[in-house]
Design a protein around this nucleic acid. Structure first.
Lengths: 238, 238
DNA sequence: GCAAAAGTGTTGGGAGTACACCCATGA
DNA sequence: TCATGGGTGTACTCCCAACACTTTTGC
């Protein structure tokens, strides 16, 4: 990995940045903070922070997630998204950002323990529409994060990470519709989900919180890959 | 991204490591070097090196690829694979590895300009079978790289990156069989590839280098996503 | 002619879409 | 009773796996 003739390595600062997504009000929303210091003071940015001396990357991301959202005992999904290291991405010097993607259910206590500047949820659509709203290269990071989330809903049961502990098929469908920005046929969606082994498990309970006939409540299943996959309509189809 | 109260960032060394894959002798093979210095002296490792002060990550990976393989004017694919940053992954200190995945055609002049210790191709199967053959966490990186390559063959036309400028459908199928480790029906494969828009383009030329009836030669098409996707047999299918 | 690889036709099944239709609740 | 969402049945289509069969070369 390191050649004999290499010069001394240049020292980098390494931060973890977070794309924290949830579905609120039928929209895919992302957690952003308002920067309190230069550079980009007053601009919106993704939450994040430096990796500590003896800290693993995923641990650092989880620590930042806890600091920014106050999530405690909430089921969530966290994975590495990618690393952004352009020499000019931070005017203060060479800062490497290891971006992570977090998917959370809609917390009724949204941003409890944030110790950063005011953290809040914003719809991803509004932020992605204008590339200048976010500081640094965070527009690119957000864009990559949303695309990753969209792709993962196709072949993994990760949509359940956006749902509460128990959920109805209808609520799960609303997650897909919010993330993909499409409409799905409720009847076919129902059959597809309940027919895909390991996607959801019946709890035996029902709810009428959506109105109408009582719906069965499900919890996430054990599969980590969907067969067959959920196919999203339209994009690049003949 | 950086909070007001953050302490000074801890300085990291940042390296790019390369998973360079090709198909040789019907097998998926990877470029490895033999380490000439401690730690792990004499063990096999993935090629790589430190990122320079003003260098972008992808540029650093491309530079290392050129140094290790002597690729010149060869069509290849290069993408970021993931970042490995366990505090204990390198006994010398805190070294972050930004792994990249490179896919190359089988070069008749295999490892020309390598300036590292002896670089050579080895079958991935042999390396993946025993986790201790590679230094550092390179077994994990190789494993992730191979899995990424397998997945990408499904929904992208990237298999053509393993092929020469012009290739037959049969040669393309051998790439799939080597990477996936499965057998595919030549007749159905032919129909599938030629029927998927943007996958391959006819050149009008033919060859008999495989023996038998002359085969049409194709070049890579313009699509960057396959519709419908190539489905790999068996893994986790009912 | 014979072996070998290229390429086409055909058929049955699994999965997707569209949509008609019935079920169970609250108001 | 009606509105609302839950859930099933069905017909049509598309894609895929399997495999029979024809084509074009080298030896």
């Amino acid at each position: 990995m390191i050649e004999q003739v290499d010069p001394d390595p240049f020292p980098f600062a390494v931060a973890v940045d977070l794309v924290v997504l949830t579905v609120r009000d039928g929209q895919l929303q992302v957690l952003v903070i308002e920067r309190g210091t230069e550079p980009f003071k007053g601009r919106l940015a993704l939450p994040g922070g430096f990796v500590l001396e003896d800290e693993d990357l995923l641990d650092a991301a989880e620590r930042e997630l806890a600091e920014e959202t106050g999530v405690l005992g909430v089921r969530f999904h966290l994975e590495q998204l990618g690393t952004y290291g352009s020499p000019t991405r931070d005017p203060r010097g060479r800062v490497l950002a290891v971006a992570h993607l977090a998917l959370l259910p809609d917390l009724t206590t949204p941003v409890a323990g944030s110790d950063a500047a005011a953290a809040r949820w914003m719809p991803t659509a509004a932020l992605l529409a204008s590339p200048r709203k976010l500081a640094f290269d965070h527009h690119q990071i957000l864009s990559d994060g949303v695309e990753r989330a969209r792709a993962k809903l196709e072949y993994s049961p990760l949509a359940t990470a956006f749902c509460p502990e128990m959920f109805t098929i209808n609520e799960l469908r609303q997650v897909y519709e919010a993330v993909w920005g499409t409409e799905l046929d409720p009847r076919n969606f129902h059959r597809k989900v309940t027919g895909t082994e390991g996607f959801v498990e019946s709890t035996g309970k029902t709810t009428t919180r959506q109105g109408g006939r009582p719906a069965q409540l499900y919890r996430p299943g054990t599969a980590d890959l969907l067969h067959p996959a959920m196919l999203r309509p339209s994009p690049a189809r003949s």
